[in-house]
Write a protein that binds this DNA or RNA. Structure first.
Lengths: 334, 334
DNA sequence: CGTTCAAATTACATCGTTGTAAAGCAGTTT
DNA sequence: AAACTGCTTTACAACGATGTAATTTGAACG
């Protein structure tokens, strides 16, 4: 059996509370006793029981990270950074998947309570404000990604501006028929909605007609399908602007499979700058932002929120920039 | 404050233990009392406190999933499937990252004890047998991926056979100078080691010389660098066989950046069949295995192990197959 | 109607940790 | 030497759920 404070106390000839004091370091302990206790701690390989600690003081040392689709590169990178930050700060991360389903975003809150989650970083897709408003008993929450509501702390990229910037960039590059992929008026996801707005704004200000391919799934395969279908029944546009790099990956595949060259025949741009972006085709032009900073801000914000639940909801906007790579850079013809 | 069994008991006019009996369903409760308690349960929105439950009966309802590099597509897909299976079975998943560092694989075990983890699915990279042998107090463990030891339950692909199959496949396709990427005699990772063996076996049986580019990091960027360096100082080989799809992605980028065409000038193969594989260039030829099955087997095995810690260590080998896509399929020259 | 027996329910203790409040113990001060 | 100070250490209870063992309830039977 594993050792408890009691065992350590007996061994060191002190009371359990003194052991606890040494372990936690909040209450001063005389050097002599401390040394004795520390020895006993080592000898017995004491590891505190976090269930007991959690029961006692209501904190579990666990935060939850909830993402819509864990299998995407984007999720993987976010998870990586969050886990790293959490690890450094001594927290563990419980991973949850919401799968774009509202039901599961709700389940989360139940689970959060059950597991005594100390905090939650949530990338919502369909979460309506209501779910959070019910939340007096909710754990501290930080929302990441685009969210159209101001009830909780948020970390986000300015999607409207970013999509506008990318669209303008493509227009400056001389493209006129620019087709967006993943947005559309009816887009259910907040991100799709916002990026669509930025795209349409930029097109409108240039007097160009918006052409939008809607696609709710936001997966490479789905994008390959819809872009392929588009290509089969429309003349080749000047550029495709996919609202995620994952979709750009699928689009690139559909485009080249039909014998078109990127960027010579059609340009392509993405959004997110996932690690793979620089290796896609001639390198994917995309909207980039610092995912490490993004995750770090979310984590820091959550820690602050856990310390003081009465803070006003805050919003951190992480900067973005256009990274031009091969898919929009027309090479000199040979 | 959230409701406890005590509150529910008071409301239903029964004792706390009866509430517990209703919640857990192990002890029979008369229909009448059950109904009353269930009503109270709903009215008070009771959610059991898992810290308390965990303290009492030593189970936390948490399993840990430890992967070397969370940001990779491979890890993301595994995490996705494991979380899905766990979710269905009512478990939560704590995510850990070992970052290829032995220290962190050890830390894991400490953390596992502290958090009362009920089980652990670990994808080791450098874990020597010793770390597990110390482990009488360790939680139930299932190792995934290639591991050269037989102390714990394992789920794996037969890497030696798979690499041999792929190498043979390339040879049958007419390739002679086949360069492997990611292996080598000195490879520290078990996977690299085993895949290297399969590759060399197949080359040897065909009487071909092995050419191996070593690369420990197993990341796209690193692969792009080493393959690029190779190309800059060697004649173009017939094919590259990268020991992960991620490295193949980097290799493809390095190859095309130098003006070579895949597959016309040089063929390319990977390993893992990540989701992105089919969208890479003309589609990446790779070693494929069912990651859902892989994760499912690991999870099932862990559940069995948690139920009975005295089982003999078992090994499940998940089948693999070569999936041919564009990177080895030479198109008809135009 | 009293007895017996099984089933349902209860009181109590316990898991390991830590906050509270009280006790212990030096070392000063008068 | 008594009283006081400030610091360290202790005893005890509590967090919430549940196994154990004892108790109560109700049905069945003579």
């Amino acid at each position: 059996m594993r050792a408890t404070v009691k065992d350590v106390a007996r061994r060191a000839g002190v009371s359990p509370k003194t052991v606890s004091n040494v372990v936690n370091g909040l209450v001063p302990v005389s050097p002599a006793t401390r040394k004795r206790v520390e020895l006993a701690l080592q000898e017995l390989e004491y590891v505190p029981n976090l269930s007991a600690r959690g029961l006692r003081n209501g904190r579990s040392g666990l935060i939850a990270l909830a993402l819509p689709k864990l299998e995407t590169a984007y999720s993987a990178e976010i998870a990586h950074h969050v886990v790293e930050f959490a690890h450094e700060a001594g927290w563990s991360v419980q991973l949850e998947e919401t799968g774009m389903e509202p039901v599961r975003e709700h389940e989360l809150f139940v689970k959060a309570r059950a597991h005594q989650i100390d905090g939650l970083i949530l990338n919502p897709v369909v979460l309506e404000a209501s779910a959070l408003e019910r939340g007096v008993t909710l754990p501290p929450v930080v929302l990441i990604g685009e969210v159209e509501q101001e009830i909780a702390d948020r970390v986000a990229v300015d999607s409207v501006a970013a999509a506008r910037d990318m669209t303008r960039f493509l227009i400056e590059r001389g493209h006129r028929q620019i087709v967006s992929v993943g947005g559309g008026e009816r887009s259910v996801s907040a991100a799709g909605h916002l990026r669509g707005i930025g795209y349409r704004e930029a097109m409108a200000e240039a007097g160009l007609p918006a052409r939008e391919i809607e696609e709710a799934d936001w997966a490479p395969a789905a994008a390959a399908r819809v872009v392929g279908a588009y290509l089969d029944s429309n003349p080749l546009p000047d550029a495709f602007f996919c609202f995620t790099d994952g979709m750009a990956m699928g689009a690139l595949s559909a485009i080249t499979a039909r014998g078109h060259r990127v960027p010579q025949d059609v340009a392509l741009a993405g959004f997110d700058d996932i690690d793979a972006a620089q290796f896609l085709g001639p390198g994917l032009t995309t909207v980039s932002f610092d995912k490490r900073e993004f995750a770090g801000r979310a984590f820091t914000m959550l820690v602050e929120r856990m310390q003081d639940r009465d803070l006003e909801p805050r919003l951190v906007v992480v900067g973005h920039r256009i990274v031009e790579r091969g898919t929009t850079r027309v090479a000199v013809r040979t």
